[in-house]
C-alpha cells in the first residue's frame, strides 16, 4: 500500500486547527486599514438610486429588525443608510417587529451616527423633530396588515417625547405631519436579520416603494422579490455594505437609461463595511483553501491507493 500519510492527514485536519486559523485570519486582517476594491451589483445600485431619489425633508418608514446577533452585517447597513438619510435631511419613523431588543439597538446606531456628525460640526438628528420611535410591535403579520389598511389606527397610542411636553402622540410630531396612510411615504425601508422583509413585502409591497437591507443568509430569498419588482433595491450582507459605501464615496455613473447619481464627496462614507471587508476576504480565502486542500488530498490519496 502506498504511503498516503500526509495526504490522509490533510483530509482530516483537526477542527481545532481550523478554528485557530479562522481566529488568526479574521482578527489579524482587522488590524490592516486597507480599502479593498469592490464592484457594486445591480440590486445595490438600485437601492442607492432609490434612497437618493427620496426628496429632502420627506419622511420614510424605517423598520429595524436586527439585533447584535447580525451586527457584522446589519449595523453597517443601518449606519450607511442613516448617513444617507441624515445628509439628505430625510425624516424617519422607526419601528421594529422582530425582536424586543431591536428598537434599542437601532437607537444606539442613531446615537453613534449623531456623535459622528457632532464631531464634524454637523446638525444632529433629534427625536420628535427628525425621527420618532414607534417602538416594538410583537406581531409582524398583524402589524403589517394594520399598516396596509390604516396607518393612523395601526400606530394609535404610540408616543414620543416632545421637547418640553413629554410623551405626545407621534402623529403630532413634525415627522408624521400629513402622513395618514402608508402610501404617503416615499419609501419603506427594512433593515433585517430575519424574514420580516418577506412578511412586509407580501402585505405592503403593492402600496409603497419597498427597499430592503438583509443579511447574507436572507439575501437569496429576498432576491426573488427584487426579480419580480416588488422590492426596488436590496443590500445583501457585508458585501452589500462595502458596495453601498463605495457608491456613497464615488457616486454612480449614468448607465442603462438611469441618470448619474452623485456621491458624498469629502464626507465619512467608508465605514464598517469597508473596515470588515478585508476580514471577509481573508475568511473566504481560508475557506476556499481548506476546501481545495481537502479535495486535492482526497484525489491524491485515491490515486495512490
Amino acid at each position: 500500500m502506498a504511503n498516503t500519510g500526509v495526504w490522509d492527514k490533510l483530509q482530516t485536519v483537526d477542527r481545532r486547527i481550523l478554528y485557530l486559523l479562522l481566529i488568526v485570519f479574521a482578527t489579524v486582517s482587522l488590524f490592516f486599514k486597507v480599502t479593498v476594491p469592490t464592484k457594486p451589483g445591480e440590486p445595490v445600485k438600485d437601492f442607492y438610486r432609490s434612497v437618493m431619489d427620496i426628496p429632502e425633508g420627506k419622511t420614510v418608514i424605517l423598520q429595524s429588525d436586527f439585533t447584535q446577533s447580525t451586527r457584522g452585517e446589519s449595523s453597517g447597513q443601518m449606519e450607511a443608510l442613516l448617513r444617507i438619510l441624515m445628509r439628505k435631511n430625510v425624516k424617519f419613523a422607526l419601528l421594529s417587529v422582530a425582536d424586543p431588543q431591536a428598537p434599542l439597538v437601532a437607537l444606539n446606531v442613531i446615537r453613534a451616527i449623531n456623535q459622528e456628525r457632532k464631531a464634524k460640526g454637523e446638525r444632529t438628528y433629534v427625536a420628535w423633530e427628525d425621527f420618532v420611535n414607534l417602538g416594538y410591535f410583537p406581531n409582524a403579520e398583524g402589524t403589517a396588515n394594520s399598516m396596509a389598511s390604516n396607518l393612523t389606527t395601526a400606530m394609535a397610542g404610540r408616543r414620543e417625547n416632545a421637547p418640553g411636553k413629554g410623551p405626545t402622540d407621534v402623529f403630532q410630531s413634525p415627522v408624521l405631519q400629513g402622513i395618514r396612510a402608508v402610501q404617503d411615504v416615499p419609501a419603506y425601508i427594512n433593515v433585517t436579520g430575519s424574514k420580516t422583509s418577506n412578511i412586509l413585502i407580501e402585505r405592503l409591497g403593492k402600496k409603497v416603494p419597498f427597499l430592503a437591507m438583509v443579511t447574507g443568509v436572507m439575501g437569496p430569498e429576498t432576491l426573488n422579490y427584487y426579480a419580480s419588482g416588488q422590492v426596488k433595491g436590496v443590500v445583501i450582507g457585508l458585501n452589500g455594505v462595502a458596495e453601498i459605501e463605495t457608491l456613497m464615496d464615488k457616486g454612480l455613473k449614468a448607465e442603462n437609461g438611469h441618470p448619474a447619481v452623485a456621491g458624498f464627496e469629502g464626507q465619512i462614507n467608508l465605514g464598517r463595511g469597508t473596515g470588515y471587508y478585508l476580514a471577509l476576504h481573508a475568511c473566504l480565502t481560508l475557506m476556499i483553501l481548506a476546501i481545495v486542500i481537502g479535495n486535492v488530498a482526497m484525489v491524491v490519496t485515491r490515486r495512490k491507493k
Binding site: 424586543p100 410583537p138 406581531n139 403579520e141 398583524g142 394594520s146 389598511s149
Partner: peptide
C-alpha cells in the same frame, strides 16, 4: 372589514405580547 383590520392587528399584537 378594512376598518377592523387595525383593531384585529392590535389584538394580535397584544396576544403575541402575552406569549412573551
Amino acid at each position: 372589514l378594512a376598518d377592523a383590520i387595525p383593531v384585529v392587528g392590535t389584538f394580535a399584537n397584544i396576544l403575541t405580547a402575552f406569549i412573551l
